[in-house]
Design a protein around this nucleic acid. Sequence first.
DNA 1: ACTGCTATATAGTATAACTAAGTAGTGTCG
DNA 2: CGACACTACTTAGTTATACTATATAGCAGT
Lengths: 107, 107
Amino acid sequence: MENNTEMLKGVLEGCVLEIISRGETYGYEITQKLRELGFTDVVEGTIYTITMRLEKNNFVNTNKKASTKGPPRKFYTLNAAGQQHLKNFWGKWEFVSSKINQLKEED
Amino acid sequence: MENNTEMLKGVLEGCVLEIISRGETYGYEITQKLRELGFTDVVEGTIYTITMRLEKNNFVNTNKKASTKGPPRKFYTLNAAGQQHLKNFWGKWEFVSSKINQLKEED
DNA sequence: ACTGCTATATAGTATAACTAAGTAGTGTCG
DNA sequence: CGACACTACTTAGTTATACTATATAGCAGT
């Protein structure tokens, strides 16, 4: 599907948080998972800006580990603030998406 | 609910199109309807930039009419291109929201 | 050496919504 | 009458977030 980019604004960060909440992971892997999910146009650069932002806002802890397949990986895990932020995100999503579906289904 | 603003990016225009598709309406009224829907923070300025964009991109026809309650109203109706655009919007919404819900529900 | 996959990072751009303010018509109330 | 509230449209400037494009670098296979 073409050009969902604008529609992802404000939700992509939440998706990244959700993926991290499933267990320690790193930028490149997050990108792969999002692409598998169906967001085929998501590129690494986008995810790195998000993970850097999460780091800056203190929602994640980081841990650098060597890889056998390439350069060292920077692993992320959610901290308490990140978990709260994720919970807020899903709350907002629930609210917004239900309102939009309500608008869609009205006649 | 506070600060859904970023989450509305890319969907607010679609919501406006949907509201116009229900029948001839104007900016101020669209704003009211969105606020009733629950997007209480949406303000007129935002809606006017959207309706101007829709006009510029030739998705709507306009028709100015006098009002008994204030300045003349600028009524909008969807044209064929607008209807197609709306259809595309709902397609994208269906895709994106289903993927996000899928991510949410996984465990 | 070259190519491809893995992996992180960043400078610059585009989009879309927000803030804030201005203009203007109509009705109401002290 | 004058102030205010509600209706109604418009626009200049800001902010947030994702994208484009590029750079850097390790490792494996040819």
